[in-house]
Each structure stands twice: as C-alpha cells, then as structure tokens.
C-alpha cells in the first residue's frame, strides 16, 4: 500500500491541527455557560449577547484601525525591501536584509519590551499609534517573503523591454511591474492584516489604555461567564480569517499563473 500509513498519519495530524478549531463552533452554539462536555443543547444567544458586550466594539474598532494601517505600511515597506533585494546588489545587503527579517525569529515579547522601553524613554504616549509601530515591525518580514517571491518570478527582461520600448523607469514600474506583482501585493495586504488583527503581546504592551480585540479577548478569559461570548466571537473570527486566507491564496496562485511561473505552494 503506497504511502498508506503515511496518509493515515497525515490525516491524524490534521485532526490534531484542527481539534481546537472544530470545538470552537460547538461551544459557541452550546447552551451552557461552562465550557465543558457534555454539550447542553443548541442556542444562538451568545451571538446576540456578543452584539451588546461592553468594550467589544471599541476594541474591534481599534483593531481594525491598527490592522489596516499595519497592512498598508508594512506592504509599502515590503515592496521597497523586496524590490531592492531581488533586483539590486548593494553593499551590506545580507546584514540589512537580516536586520529587517529579524522579527521573524525574534520572540515577540523581546520586540514588545524593547520598543516599550524606548517609547517610554523618549516620552511617546502608548496608544494605537505605538501598536501600529510594533505591528509594522513584526509583519514587514512576512510581506517581504510574499513580495519577494512575486518580484522573483518576474523576468528581468520584461522591465528592460519596457525601457527599450521608450518607457522611463517610473512608467515601466507602473505599466509592467506593478500589474504583475499586484496579486502578491493583495496577498501581502491580507496576510499582514490577518497577523496584525490576531497579534496579542505587542498590543498588550504598547497599547496603553487602548485595547485591541485580542487584548479584550484575553481579559475576558478571566471571567468564566463571558467565555461563551468569546467562543461566538472566535467562531466569526476564524470563519473570517479562513475567508481572507482563501482570497489571499487565490491571488497568490493567480499571480503565479499570470507571470507564467510554477506553483511551489505555501505562504511562507
């Protein structure tokens, strides 16, 4: 049996990966305050309670502002870095790119405390703005990873052909490069948006009194009676992120197909 045991194992692994996510809607629709088995019957009341939960909407608003700003700024920075690293040779390239990509492997808590120390040291009040600063730092490496593969699959001679046919570097970028990497840009916006929306530590350390959605969720875990509402909220968030990721994946694949490349799979 070719790969039979491997397949069995891989399926078991998927069960392990999805176990928590499968439980989420179960408890979101379960008619009980205690999050435990056995289940107690179907209800949608947690979803309607979510609607009026105090603090949820301001947190959501903060999170949206942060996530959208983060996505735009990080993707813009990512375009610069990805273009520079795929197209040009320059002195200190490995070191510079290493520094920019460092947050990918640095524990978030380190980023959070070091930024906290500096921001407080120079007297910047903690707010949504400081959270954005941290999130941009965290998500830029992800945008670079996505955008680099988009820029990489671009044939260098396409750009030269545009110059050769009379375009300036700026108009060549607009007419040829931008349309071809657009799917990568959209995918990068979506991914950095998703990461920022979900990020907890930096928001916790740098948000001051301005609470984001994950910080709100974390605070609600302390009150058992509000946990079912969080399960309902989580169900919606998971559904939403799966939707966003599917869109991101769609654009990533279309981008590869468009530039005539081969799909090597995966976001990272």
């Amino acid at each position: 049996m070719k790969g039979g045991w491997f397949k069995l194992y891989a399926l078991a692994y998927l069960v392990f990966l999805y176990a928590p996510i499968v439980l989420l809607p179960m408890f979101a629709f379960n008619d009980a305050t205690v999050i435990a088995f056995p289940l107690n019957g179907f209800t949608t009341k947690w979803f309607s309670e979510m609607w009026v939960a105090p603090g949820l909407w301001p947190a959501l608003k903060n999170s949206m502002i942060i996530a959208i700003s983060t996505a735009v700024i990080a993707t813009a920075l990512g375009i610069f870095a990805a273009r520079a690293s795929t197209r040009y040779k320059f002195p200190g390239k490995a070191g510079i790119m290493g520094l920019i990509m460092l947050p990918l492997v640095l524990p978030e808590i380190i980023v959070a405390v070091s930024l906290l120390v500096v921001l407080l040291g120079i007297g910047v009040p903690l707010s949504i703005f400081t959270v954005i600063l941290g999130h941009v730092l965290m998500t830029t490496p992800f945008t670079i990873a996505i955008l680099s593969s988009a820029f990489q699959s671009l044939d260098r001679s396409l750009e030269e052909a545009a110059y050769d046919l009379g375009e300036t570097p700026v108009s060549a970028f607009r007419l040829v490069i931008l349309p071809l990497v657009m799917p990568g840009i959209i995918s990068s916006l979506l991914i950095s948006f998703t990461i920022s929306l979900d990020e907890f530590i930096i928001a916790f350390f740098l948000g001051g009194t301005q609470v984001t959605l994950p910080v709100y969720i974390f605070s609600q875990f302390r009150f058992p009676q509000s946990v079912p509402v969080i399960m309902a909220l989580g169900t919606i968030l998971v559904a939403l992120s799966i939707l966003l990721l599917s869109i991101a994946e769609y654009f990533r694949r279309r981008g590869i197909a468009k530039s005539g490349g081969k799909d090597t799979g995966g976001f990272l």
């Binding site: 044939d155 001679s157 396409l158 030269e160 052909a161 545009a162 110059y163 050769d164 046919l165 009379g166 375009e167 300036t168 040829v176 349309p179 071809l180 468009k258 530039s259 005539g260």
Partner: peptide
C-alpha cells in the same frame, strides 16, 4: 542616452512578452 531614448529596439532571448 538612456535605453528608452535610443533609436534601437531589442528582441530578448526570453522574448519578454508582457504576460498581463
């Protein structure tokens, strides 16, 4: 004279046909 101002045009090895 930059490439876009030269009276020369090129057929590239990869053809560089704009895929979009």
């Amino acid at each position: 004279i930059p490439p876009n101002k030269r009276p020369t045009n090129m057929v590239f090895q990869s053809y560089a046909i704009f895929p979009h």
